[in-house]
Design a protein around this nucleic acid. Structure first.
Lengths: 405, 405
DNA sequence: TTGAAAGCGTTACCAA
DNA sequence: TTGGTAACGCTTTCAA
């Protein structure tokens, strides 16, 4: 029903800008969308002698609108089935025929319609990424690699932001499910929220509680332990960790690493800020924001430690801000270490000793994992014991640690 | 042809984990994809007396796989057309009937299939975002708002990375065109590259040359002019701007702002670094990277100015690094101002005076623009004179400027 | 090796 | 107001 015309003209030509009158048909009127640039192509047919009997294939196909497989098939003088096989590369097709189809496709500027393919194949070749925001280097560094990984496999990345609010997160899930993505890479905001049934899910960086989906996380336990050990090795016996909200798995891992280090060093269990005494490892919880870190540091000012372990880059930024406000020189009066490694950490004076999670590898592994889950499909069910992949990060030893006093 | 069964059971139940044998049919076999979680729902029909004659609607619909509109229609006891109208909300449908459909849809957990809709409506309700990378706060800040804007309009954001390489950029375009996105928000990498015919395009931050697509950019001309005026007002008469590659429109705008300020101040035309003399405004071009800024600063060390205008946050970072290496105290010996406003600018000592482009508004306007272009469709052609929307940014006056000497 | 045809789930037309 | 039906463009049988 779509309007196509055979023209005798041999040269390929492209006329841009206006809809071509001859193309008006019942279906052109159906949704009267005038293409911004009507691709009007008259193409010479390849100079073959065709093995098939029947009418000669057209020497030109004139086609408004976006060319379809049928257009290609007509130009190549084959059936749509053959054209499909030639282009997708699966199924038998004579090499000569295939070439003819491929030439025709190129000539018309044919592109397979993703929606039709998705409908027919029951897979969208799209993967959703659910992240709280894009202003966090944690997510974007990983997302960048994830996108590359997916792209290489022919999948596309659809991004939805979950914000800080569980309602936003639910909404983001809705849009993903509506879009029928084949899989979702998920950075949970609310670790207590249930995960929807539907496409395979891989969690990134953080993980939900009581849910059996694979997760790709940084080995913060080891990382923060080693980071804290650096602080302790410099001789500090009065230290504080500023951590995020305990409901996040990342916070728990980081605190656990801190705990292991201070226990081994004989500072006992990390305890709340109130604690006093010569040897002590304290712990303070804050919002994962600059303001949170700043407030925490200000609270500490009354009874300052000799070293601070800020368990996120934003917390560190806030702590540094507070130190500037309070006139506390770093590292002379206070040693400071961080987590994450934004570019400015290395340039800061003093440069910041930190544990850098392997964000790129996390993105890459998340990509591999979700692709594996997608191709496994129903075959590999959500395992009873979810696989948590802990990737080792890197300690960046710089100048922000000095011995106390 | 799809397998659905009527069951007498009244209670809604969901059986998870295994494919339900009774669901095996020709089409279940067709693509033997065992759903990870088969949603098996037996739902009580709403307790209405139906106004229609004919057979009573089923009291339950048993359906494997994802429920379709036909399932909903069957459960509600209406035709698919009616169900479609009820759910989409367009077209006539009796309120009572509509409620029945809606209840049935909820009961089954129905979701409209995006692929089918896209195929039928010839629009994917997806917008592509083509950016060089995601590690740049410029793009991500804008992308975040853009996503929100699109989401509110029922569109989804598909991200592709163009990298730094024109080949990557072409590939990214391919994936977008394949996916048949309804529009593209584009940050050009290669301003000389032609834009593909196809969906409407809005450029963000930078614009291509000789191409008539609308662009949303920061008013860097004004911003950098005012920024430079601040430097000049402090008494500096020997200043240098470190700019990016001249092929980028952003570089040209920023340099233009610099030029206007220095001309008005009687420093003449900005000239290359070689220039000597007491009153001079020099200009140096660098890669838009930390390394580029660092190298530029090192080159300046032989004949240092009293103030540096770094025309990107990365260039500034590099310049700061070089100053640390060279032992140049800021702002005492060298005033430094920047462009962009990553979080650490305000915390740095001295805090960085800078021109902050309106990234959020740019994202929002890009969203509005692409949505407008999409709904206008063919109606509003690419205008002969492309509309460039220059949004004013904000000058952040901080501590990094001191009078010279 | 090929072509014809069914069908993916939806929307929109049209006749009732 | 409603239901039936014909596409949308593609993949995959199935018979030739």
């Amino acid at each position: 029903m779509r309007s196509r015309r055979i023209r005798g003209s041999a040269a390929a030509m492209v006329v841009a800008g206006v809809a071509f009158d001859g193309c008006a048909s019942a279906w052109a009127r159906w949704r009267p969308r005038v293409r911004r640039t009507a691709a009007i192509v008259a193409a010479r047919a390849p100079v073959h002698t065709y093995g098939r009997s029947g009418p000669e294939p057209p020497t030109a196909v004139h086609c408004c609108s976006v060319p379809t497989l049928a257009d290609v098939a007509r130009l190549a003088g084959v059936g749509v089935g053959t054209a499909s096989r030639a282009i997708s590369g699966k199924g038998y097709v004579d090499p000569v025929t295939r070439d003819r189809v491929l030439v025709a496709a190129r000539e018309l500027g044919y592109r397979r319609n993703a929606a039709a393919r998705a409908l027919r194949e029951r897979r969208s070749r799209a993967v959703g990424l659910l992240v709280p925001d894009l202003s966090n280097e944690f997510y974007t560094s990983a997302a960048e690699v994830l996108q590359a990984e997916l792209d290489a496999a022919g999948f596309q990345l659809v991004v939805a932001l979950t914000g800080a609010d569980p309602a936003d997160e639910r909404h983001a899930w809705e849009t993903m499910l509506d879009r029928q993505v084949d899989g979702v890479v998920h950075v949970p905001v609310d670790p207590a929220a249930p995960l929807p049934d539907g496409p395979p899910i891989v969690q990134l960086n953080r993980r939900s509680r009581r849910v059996s989906v694979p997760a790709i996380v940084s080995d913060d336990i080891t990382g923060v332990r080693e980071l804290t050990e650096q602080v302790l090795a410099a001789g500090h016996r009065d230290i504080v960790a500023i951590a995020g909200p305990p409901r996040l798995s990342t916070t728990r891992d980081r605190v656990e690493g801190y705990r292991r280090a201070v226990r081994k060093a004989g500072l006992g269990e990390p305890a709340d800020v109130g604690r006093t005494g010569p040897d002590r490892a304290r712990l303070i919880s804050a919002d994962l924001t600059t303001g949170g870190g700043r407030d925490a540091m200000h609270r500490l000012a009354a009874d300052p430690p000799t070293a601070v372990v800020a368990l996120s880059s934003r917390l560190l930024l806030g702590a540094l801000k507070a130190c500037a406000e309070l006139g506390i020189p770093i590292p002379d009066e206070l040693s400071v270490v961080g987590l994450g490694d934004p570019e400015w950490f290395a340039i800061w004076r003093p440069s910041i000793t930190t544990f850098a999670p392997p964000l790129a590898e996390m993105g890459r592994e998340a990509g591999k994992a979700i692709l594996a889950a997608i191709s496994a499909d129903g075959a590999a069910e959500r395992p009873a014991r979810p696989h948590v992949l802990r990737l080792p990060g890197r300690l960046q030893l710089r100048e922000s640690i000095q011995p106390p006093g």
